[in-house]
Amino acid sequence: MLYESPQTTTEAVTLLAKAKGKVHVLAGGSDLLVRMKGGYIEPDVIVDIKRIKSMNAVKKTADGYLIGAAVSCAQLGDNAALVKAWPGVVEAANLIGSDQIQGRCTIVGNLCNASPAADSVPAMIAAGATAIVQGPRGERQVAVEKIAKSPGVTSLKKGEVVEAIQLPPKQKKSGDAYLRFTPRTEMDIAVVSAAVNLTLGPKGVITDARVALGAVAPKALLVKPAAKAIIGSTLDDDALDKLAAACAAACDPIDDKRGTVHFRTKVAQVLAKRAAKIAYQRAGGK
């Protein structure tokens, strides 16, 4: 195996494009090294992107926040402005693993690992985040919900690397929230999860919303009917019930070691409702 640690994105793209055999990007390593340990993958080349300066920064721009691919989730939690703007996304990122994992893991790694149970992904989807992808043919921007195709499989092409995540600017009177269900308080993978991002108009009426669910399908889902169910409402009980029903309808989970179809479908509704209430409050709704 070869270990490469390029200094620039261009260098990384060249390495990834030219590499022979199985090539993997190393960001935090909290998924990659686990899969190597278990013998599930045996890379021929590993490209460590942590020495690329531009990928190590969180930038506030006119377009919102640009989060570099090598930025650890712990760093996101330490960025007060980001926490204020996107509390749901940061909370989701900070739920991944222990403090030890937080010091390493990244939201881009979480996204590219393409697990349906990834914590930060539903939150990013609800936030309307975009992945900045660099490749041999230049840059392209992809909605985060389009990165994962199925468990472990992404839409990235040979030589491509996600350089950063673009979060939109924080809208006035908006709020987001993410909740997951795990049997333990920490060190667990989401059995089911829900993220809600919403914006309020006059009198606390929801004017815009995005709802995403995790671990209820082969990939994290953007559930448009669930958003529709609460747009135009003040998140009254009726709207919450409709939100829950839309989430239930979107669920297509499996029975596995972590949960059952019945449990996931039921708890997805509970979490969607609870997350919506938190987001609503954060947006200034009462």
Binding site: L26, S30, V34, D48, S72, Q100, G103, R104
Partner: peptide, 19 residues
């Protein structure tokens, strides 16, 4: 296997020696 890497708390089993 917890250690500090440039001050950050990490699991050394999830870091490559080369890093």
């Amino acid at each position: 296997c917890s250690i500090r890497l440039d001050g950050a708390l990490v699991c050394s089993c999830l870091v490559l020696g080369a890093e």
